[in-house]
Design a protein around this nucleic acid. Structure first.
Lengths: 193, 193
DNA sequence: ACAGAATTAGGTCATTTGTCCTAATTAATC
DNA sequence: GATTAATTAGGACAAATGACCTAATTCTGT
């Protein structure tokens, strides 16, 4: 009784390899070899590369949904929930410096490939957008909520891109710090000078 | 007497194809076919794919240097120079929505491929960083100049990434507008309320 | 224990990849 | 005009790719 089904193992490994090496550059053989399974076995579970990509995106959406749910459970205040999001830049800094943001890099790669799944990859972004939008709305930002969500997503994506070019921990902390200050002024409007 | 040498044509086409389709996904055959030249001719000018990449990066660095120089010539005020940089988001919005930022996407792709040229791609970023840093310093930002340059680069990169996922012109103009306001407060410190 | 379904192994196939070679053609130099 | 150098054409090559098939094995329900 394996801890994970072969299919789950394939999706998990493909997820990691797509992130670390890119979708196009990762081959069937790479995934099968990394798992120690035969190509035939692989083909039984996924007939085309696009099917694996679909399954990987499904997995990422589930994981994202779970993570966003956890952040909402851990903190009651919208501001603290949003801070949990921002701090993944620090938590995952090592991987981001090496491979960028999994969401952003997949989206841009599929855009270049003109891949049919680009829209699905953008849906992962949309999940973050809506969740952040909900938090800003709950924090009393009303109509600005969605704009603020997009703005914050962009800020975080930008830091992630810069991290791969300049792996500088000080830069990360400085940017995260500035975002925290910005959130502070947003959620305590009577303290702005 | 051709307007461009074969070698120049190859580099130019490779540049465009690498941007629109990615480095890994663009093959020798793609470039040769797009130019209508034979593979043998191609091989005469570039023996390996890495050589083409190097030439493309050289070209981009030259073009970038020229563009930054032009912006410096067109405007005397550091703030206006920096605005020229920010507004490429609007000027090139169609291509960015389709393929992202050429600098950022190449950097992240080469990072994932663990490619030797990743450092050279980051040098293009470094050119922008230093140029922006010079402008901020000329604008009286002193020690903060480099931090501000990195911050602004990140802001622009973030908008570019979001544009590929959400091709929304309003978002672009909103973000560019906010950056302009931010620059305004930076360069006119006595007007902050 | 056994039949049927699910899963896995191993190999095949046409195509494409990056790399490379040789012969032909064009351009430059004396 | 002859000789040499630079450039181009048109393949060839092994390796890798995504896709596919069949036979063997393992699991499942009865």
């Amino acid at each position: 009784m394996p801890a994970l089904s072969t299919r789950q193992q394939i999706v998990e490994k493909a997820d990691a390899l797509f992130y670390a090496g890119g979708f196009e550059a990762t081959s069937f053989a790479d995934i099968a070899a990394a798992l120690g399974i035969s190509r035939g076995n692989f083909y039984y579970h996924f007939r085309t590369k696009d099917e694996i990509l679909d399954a990987v995106i499904d997995r990422r959406m589930e994981n994202t949904r779970a993570m966003l749910g956890n952040w909402a459970e851990e903190d009651d205040a919208p501001k603290d929930r949003i801070l949990s999001f921002v701090r993944i830049l620090v938590t995952n800094r090592t991987k981001i410096m090496a491979f960028g943001c999994p969401v952003g890099t997949l989206s841009t790669e599929l855009a270049k490939l003109d891949h049919a799944a680009h829209g699905r990859a953008a849906e992962i972004f949309a999940m973050y957008r809506e969740w952040l939008s909900d938090q800003f709305r709950a924090g009393g930002q009303g109509d600005r909520a969605d704009s603020l969500a997009m703005h914050l997503l962009g800020r975080v994506q930008g830091v992630a891109v810069m991290m791969t070019a300049f792996p500088d921990e000080d830069f990360i902390r400085r940017e995260v710090g500035e975002i925290e200050i910005w959130l502070g002024t947003l959620f305590e409007p009577d303290i702005r000078n």
